[in-house]
Amino acid sequence: MVQGPLADAMTHIGQLAMLRRLAGAPVPKGSFIVAEVQMGKLRYPG
Rank of each mutant, 00 (worst) to 15 (best):
M1Q: 07
M1A: 11
M1L: 09
V2P: 02
V2S: 05
Q3I: 05
Q3N: 04
G4A: 14
P5C: 03
L6S: 07
A7K: 11
A7P: 02
D8C: 04
D8F: 07
D8P: 00
A9S: 09
A9E: 08
M10F: 12
M10I: 13
M10R: 15
T11C: 09
T11R: 14
H12Q: 15
H12C: 12
H12T: 15
H12N: 13
H12V: 14
I13K: 10
I13E: 13
G14F: 04
G14C: 07
G14H: 07
G14E: 11
Q15F: 09
L16G: 11
L16K: 11
L16R: 13
L16A: 15
A17C: 09
A17R: 14
M18E: 14
M18G: 12
M18R: 14
L19D: 14
L19H: 11
L19S: 12
R20H: 14
R20L: 15
R21C: 10
R21F: 10
R21L: 13
A23Y: 06
G24A: 07
G24V: 06
P26Q: 04
V27Y: 09
V27F: 12
V27D: 12
V27H: 08
P28C: 03
P28L: 01
K29Q: 00
K29T: 01
K29S: 03
K29W: 03
S31C: 09
S31N: 15
F32R: 03
F32C: 03
F32P: 03
I33R: 05
I33C: 00
V34P: 02
V34M: 01
V34C: 00
A35Y: 02
V37D: 01
V37I: 15
V37A: 08
G40D: 03
K41H: 15
K41T: 08
K41V: 06
L42H: 00
R43A: 10
Y44S: 00
P45C: 05
G46I: 02
G46C: 00
G46R: 02
G46A: 05
